[in-house]
Structure formats: C-alpha cells, structure tokens
Design a protein around this nucleic acid. Sequence first.
DNA 1: AATGATTTTGATAACTAATATCAACTAATT
DNA 2: AATTAGTTGATATTAGTTATCAAAATCATT
Lengths: 146, 146
Amino acid sequence: MVLHKEEEVLTTYLKNKNLKLTNQRRVILKLFLNTEIHVTAEELYEKLKHTHPEIGIATVYRTLKLFCDAGLALEVQFGDGFTRYEHHYGHGHHDHLVCEKCGKYIEVIDERIEKLQQSLAEQNNFHILRHRMELYGLCKDCFCKK
Amino acid sequence: MVLHKEEEVLTTYLKNKNLKLTNQRRVILKLFLNTEIHVTAEELYEKLKHTHPEIGIATVYRTLKLFCDAGLALEVQFGDGFTRYEHHYGHGHHDHLVCEKCGKYIEVIDERIEKLQQSLAEQNNFHILRHRMELYGLCKDCFCKK
DNA sequence: AATGATTTTGATAACTAATATCAACTAATT
DNA sequence: AATTAGTTGATATTAGTTATCAAAATCATT
C-alpha cells in the first residue's frame, strides 16, 4: 500500500513530458499497484468496472503503456496471447517460475545463471541487451495434488 | 535436403491417427524443412504462393500445428506477435540468442545453465516441465556496424 | 478401377487482443 | 475565466489466428 513513491515517479514523469495527471491515471495506478503482480489490461478493466464504470478499456491499455514509459511497469509475455504488466519500480531484474496448473508466478533470480548467460553470449560473439527466462511446470501445491 | 526420415515420421503419425497424407502436407513439409529454422505461417504461405498458388493459408496454419503434434515442429514465440515454428525432429532442447537488429536467431545450449535451472527450481519447490530462455541483443555483425 | 466412408481443403467469416480515430472533455497555465 | 494542448471513451480498425462448411481428395474395400 505504499503509493507515495510511485505516484511521485508518475507525477515527475508527466511533468517532464508535459503530460497531465488525470484522475483516470491516478485510479489505474492505485489499482495496478494493489493488484497481483502480473495483470493484463482486460483484468484491470474488469476490476475497474465496478468502482469506475466511466473508465474505458482504451484508457487502461494506454495507461499501462504510459506506466512502462515512466518506469513503473514492465511488459511480460508468457505465450498465452496476453500482454501482462508487472510492477517495475524498485524491482530488479528477475526470472519467472510459471505454474501451468494454477497460473501462479514466482519471481526468482540466480546470479550464477546471469553470469553464465553473459559468458554464453560472449562465446557466440553476441552482445546481450536484455533476456528472459521462464521455467514452466508445477508449483509444490499443484505437484502434490497431482 | 534429407527428407526421408521426416517424411517417414509424418507418414507413420498419420497412419496411427487414421489421417491422410495429402499433397499439400507433402509440399508444406518439404518447404518447411528447406526453410530457415524459425518461420511463421505467413512466411511459408508467401513462399508457397509462387509455386503452389492453390494452397490456402488456412491449410498452412493447420499443417504446421499438425507437424507439432507429429513431433516434427515446435512452436516458439519471441514476443513480436508471431508464432514461429522451428524444426524439432532430431533437434535437442536449446535456447536462443536473438539479434534485435537483423532478426537472426542463434541456437545455443549450456549444460551448466540447464543444471542451475534445475537447482533453482528445487530451491523453490518447483517441478520444471519445460523452459525457455532467450537472450536478446546484437549479434557481432550488427554490434560492429554501430 | 469403382465405391463409399471419412478426412481434408480453400474461401471466407468470425474471433480476439490491441491500436487508431476523433469529437467532446479536462488539466494546467496565463 | 479563458486559452491551449493533452486526454478520454466509444467505436472502428487492424492483424494473427481459428472456425465454418460445401466441395474435393484420400484410402481401404470391393
């Protein structure tokens, strides 16, 4: 529930770009930050419908892209056809464990793997700008339940 | 240009499933195997248009899915909105280096990383079924040119 | 080779996630 | 309060892919 910092980041970004802080942007930011970490635009829109039926879906899409530009969100794709957005401000790079049964996403980071990725790239004369690694399978709960 | 094995795999698969070996399937398989390893359905369709204008795009989509079921192809997605298909028969698991400038894909495999992924999953009580790792950046050529 | 049951095909409609359009509206500056 | 420039919501549009369905093709059987 710590909004202060993120709201400040957004405000600063908007000011620098001569953009405006609208009520929609405030509302969507609040909801985004209080929602599970990997949401789609549609999911956010569904949640908004109850409390803010006046906010259109186009605005949700637009605003999430804006958050990415402002460094508050990051686009991720897990191959199910949806673009998801995760919290980015104050979050370092990480990889994902994706449970294919319950849909849970665990964020992980392993420095040894990061180093090996770098050396693997060097062996191939490749200059890494970014990377993604997702391990798909079953979380403990789903694995035990069978 | 070694088609024999793959054609046999397809034939066997079709027979087991009581499906039929059509000329379209033969043509698309041949083209798929002689085409760069990560093609989209649209790309294959474009190439076919010249030599086989009678083959529809729906058939290309359908046939690529069929190849996946038969173990001849594998779906991959690099987040550009296209589903790509790579050769799968006789190809072991591998990861990708993706050049964001020229679009080249290099296939790589690093056993040390594979092992660490396994141990990372275990630390999190997670049971891996499959995974993907893509390193995005610039290949040597594109990096030197600018 | 003809038959017949079943699968496949191509044209096209439909679907879905996401983006573009645009007149009405709103925030922020003067 | 007026002005300017950005923003919004409804909706049309786009793009990749899948569904529909009558006509055509495959293949086992005769």
